[in-house]
Design a binder for these strands. Structure first.
Lengths: 207, 207
DNA sequence: GATATCCGAAACTCTCCAGTTTCGTATATG
DNA sequence: CATATACGAAACTGGAGAGTTTCGGATATC
C-alpha cells in the first residue's frame, strides 16, 4: 500500500482520522476512473463524488498516481471465495455456471479500469503488478480450479496447458469489449465455451 | 479524411504546400502516439520529430484529435495484399507462414496505437471506426482467407463460425501484449495455433 | 471546557499544453 | 526579379488541473 508512505505519529489529543473516508475515496476514485480514464480523472471529481474536500484526499495520498494505485489494488479484496465455487460435475457445467449478471458486470468494470490505465502500464511496473493481481489473476484463478477438477476427473487430458486455457476466456471477453466495443452477453459467452474453450481443452465436440 | 475540412482555394502565385510534409507529420504523430499515448503526446513533440514547425501542423489539421484520427486511419493504407498471401495447401501451414518478424512488429505497433487511444474509443465513435478498419479488420481479413480456403478444401467443417475464428488469434496476442505485458514470440504463436485455433476450427489434434 | 486535530470548502500558485500569432527566410510562379 | 505563399522557429494567450494553503466549524480526548 502506497498510503503507508504517509503514516504519521499518533496524536494523543483531538479528533482522529476517520478510516471510513479512505474507502469512500477509493470507491469514488474507481468510479471516476471507470468513467473518465486516468487522464480524464481529476482529484476534484474524486473528492466531490466522495463528498470530501480535496485536502482530505491529499492528507491521505501523496499524489494522484498513488491514489489510483491503491484504488486499483483495492479491487482485489472484494473478490470471490475460491472454495465456494459452483461444482456441477462437468467442465462445461462449471464454466456455464459462472455466467451470471453480477459476474459479467464485475468483469466489465475491471476491463474499464484496465482501459483507463492502459497507457500507463508500460511505464509503471508497480501499477502493472497491481492490475495483474487485482484484475487478471482472480479470473484466471477461478478457471484454474475448473480445469484442475476436469483433469482430476479425467474429463480432459492431463497434459493440456492449464495456464493458457485459463486466459482464453478472459482474452476473448477483453478483445470484444476493448477492441470491438461490443456487449458481452450470455450468448457470446456460451459460444466461447462450446466453440473454443472446450475444443481447446480437448473435450469432444457436442453435436 | 478530416483534413479535407481545411481545403483552401488554390493560389496562382507563390510557393505551394508540400504534400510530402503531410506524410512526414502523420508518421511522426504515429511514432509519438506509440511512445506516449494520446494524452502524453504533444503537438510540439510531433512537430519536432517531423522537423516541422507547430504552425505547419495546424495549417494542415484543425486540432490534435483530427491529426490523430488521420494518423490512425493512415495505418490502413500500407497493408498487405490479400491476393498475395501464402498458400501452403493446409490451414496450419498458412497460419504458420504468417509468423514472420515484420508481421509481428507490425502487429505490436498497431496494438500500441490501440493502447494509446484506448480510453477515447468509448466517447469517439469516429476514432473507434478508424481504429477498427485500420488496426483490427486487416488482420481479420487475412485469417478469413485462410479459413475460407480450409472450408473449400473440406479441411474444416463448413459450419464453423469464421468471424469468431478470425478474431481468436488477435485476441490472444492482444491480451498477452496489453494485459500481461509479455512478448509475442514464435513459440507463443505456434502454440496458439496448435493448442487453440486448430482445435476450435475442428481440426483433429496432431499427436 | 480547553486543546489538538480532523473535516469540507474554496481560494490560490504553478506548470503544462492546445492553439495563435509573428517574423525572417526559402521558393515557386509569372 | 517582383509577388504571393509556405516554411521553421519562437514568443505568446488562455484554460485546465495538480498540488497547497487557509478558513470556519465539528469532534474526540483529557
Amino acid at each position: 500500500m502506497t498510503q503507508a508512505d504517509l503514516v504519521e505519529e499518533k496524536p494523543k489529543l483531538g479528533r482522529r482520522r476517520d478510516p471510513g473516508r479512505d474507502q469512500d475515496i477509493l470507491d469514488a476514485a474507481l468510479d471516476v476512473l471507470v468513467d473518465c480514464g486516468y487522464e480524464g480523472m481529476t482529484i476534484d471529481m474524486v473528492a466531490s463524488r466522495a463528498k470530501a474536500g480535496k485536502a482530505t484526499v491529499y492528507r491521505r495520498w501523496a499524489s494522484k498516481s498513488e491514489l489510483v494505485l491503491d484504488a486499483v489494488a483495492c479491487m482485489k479484496s472484494r473478490d470471490v471465495d475460491l472454495t465456494a465455487l459452483p461444482d456441477t460435475g462437468s467442465l462445461r457445467g462449471d464454466l456455464v455456471a459462472m455466467i451470471k449478471p453480477p459476474s459479467i458486470r464485475d468483469g466489465e468494470r475491471k476491463l474499464r479500469v484496465m482501459i483507463g490505465i492502459a497507457s500507463m502500464l508500460a511505464n509503471n511496473p508497480e501499477l502493472a503488478d497491481a492490475a495483474r493481481s487485482a484484475l487478471i489473476e482472480p479470473r484466471a484463478a477461478i478457471n484454474r480450479v475448473f480445469f484442475q477438477r476436469a483433469i482430476e476427473r479425467g474429463e480432459i487430458p492431463a497434459d493440456v496447458d492449464v495456464e493458457k486455457l485459463c486466459l482464453l476466456g478472459p482474452s476473448l471477453v477483453a478483445y470484444r469489449t476493448l477492441m470491438l466495443q461490443l456487449p458481452v452477453d450470455r450468448e457470446f459467452l456460451i459460444s466461447n465455451i462450446d466453440e473454443i474453450i472446450l475444443p481447446a481443452a480437448g473435450v469432444r465436440r457436442a453435436g
